[in-house]
Design a protein around this nucleic acid. Structure first.
Lengths: 233, 233
DNA sequence: AGGCTTTTGTGAACGTGTGCACAAAGCTGA
DNA sequence: TCAGCTTTGTGCACACGTTCACAAAAGCCT
């Protein structure tokens, strides 16, 4: 379930505040979901609540952590040290939860060799060796879009089966490989879509009539692969 | 529909390669979805395909762009110029699609005043004025988690109804305000979950039996608000 | 000890989104 | 002009996730 990390976050906050138990109602509110949904999700990992009382916070934190595999170490490699890769390398949110940034890689020899976040950036040539030696289990792709599929193929060939893709491309991977995609432009476009609907309903028809057959009138084009370029420094 | 941006991206790539028409089958493959689903999505904006031929690429690009509201200008403000905010400010993917970074803001007076990506970072004190003067329509929150709700409240009070949240918090907003969340830790945790299941089925039971009532044994805690701190420079 | 309150766990209805399969529609070539 | 081929648009069934509502269970108070 994709909601477990959400619950874990809310529970951890409660744990720090010393709250011993929590009801499904309270926890659901903190996580922003329906209480029945939360109870069903939790019952999926086995019933560990007490009727009339609620759930033991510490115990539930432990259970979810174990279910998510957060009790073990997950070495992560970041490929493509542009703006985004640079930011992720310095991002503190990884280390705290078993996700250890094990390696940074870039195709540009001017970038490889630099020290970023206390690590030396390695060159793409060493990818396979690094994955093998450091037992990397998750690859994070922050390259420009045209390079993403190639990097992905090499990661898969090296044995990686979990990829987090920030490049605006649909990656083709064989069965058994998990890819999750984070696309900032798409998020913004969805917001813009809803924003437009709001202002449209404020004044005017929801779907203004369209000129039927105009050809060759492309609006602002989606120029494809505009991910962060390699950062100057 | 959240898939329209995906189609738009695929169509734009075809457009650049000079492809005049495309069938639902081809486009679906490029976008990584089912062809029937794609046809249904497109029929939702009005039937603009030709049976036996396919869809006119340029025309479809125009239609989707208009439906998404990409034919107009969307000024974006980025609040919290830490690692992530810095990267986003330099990110080229915004400008190309009607999303113009109109303002950068930070609560730290040492950060305000700096020039980043050709813009001067403003102080949070000026938030309301900036939103009003620059007609900001989308707010991007890249602050540490504890500050996110406060920033969110101020954005909403200033009239913003679309927010993209990178802070690891569930934001409470009134009816009518859209919030989309991007949480890197959660994406990684979901990957770790699946990765664990894979190795678990390789050798051993899928769900190893649990010690029933151990209290006070929290595993690696989710330390909550570990978003990028404000960047040194 | 027993009834009352609280809260879990879950059965069942509901709504939504997905995918199949096919008829209608348009193009092509003879 | 007409048969045949291709591809769209959509009715229908199905599966999934969500939500309601309630019975069973646990604690608490008198």
């Amino acid at each position: 379930m994709a909601r477990l990390p959400l619950y874990l976050r809310a529970l951890s906050a409660l744990s720090e505040r010393g709250v011993p138990t929590v009801s499904s109602e309270e926890l659901a509110a903190a996580a922003g979901v329906n209480s029945a949904k939360l109870r069903k999700d939790l019952s999926y990992l086995g019933s560990y609540g007490t009727r009339g009382v609620g759930y033991d916070v510490e115990y539930l934190v432990y259970q979810i952590s174990r279910e998510l595999g957060l009790t073990q170490d997950w070495p992560v490699a970041i490929i493509g040290i542009g703006n985004l890769g640079h930011a992720l390398a310095n991002y503190g949110g990884f280390a705290s939860r078993g996700f250890r940034v094990a390696a940074l890689l870039d195709a540009d020899r001017a970038v490889a060799g630099q020290r970023i976040a206390g690590m030396v950036v390695r060159h793409m040539d060493d990818l396979e060796q690094i994955v093998r030696d450091d037992r990397v289990s998750i690859g994070v792709i922050t390259t420009p879009a045209p390079a993403a599929q190639g990097v992905c193929d090499r990661l898969v060939a090296a044995g990686i089966t979990s990829i987090l893709n920030f490049a605006p491309t649909v990656l083709a991977v064989p069965e058994g490989v998990d890819v999750r995609k984070v696309d900032l432009s798409i998020e913004l476009q969805i917001l813009a879509f809803h924003e437009q609907r709001k202002s449209a309903t404020d004044a005017g028809p929801t779907l203004p009539p369209t000129a039927p057959p105009p050809a060759g009138t492309a609006a602002r084009g989606d120029r494809g692969g505009d991910l962060p370029e390699v950062m100057p420094a």
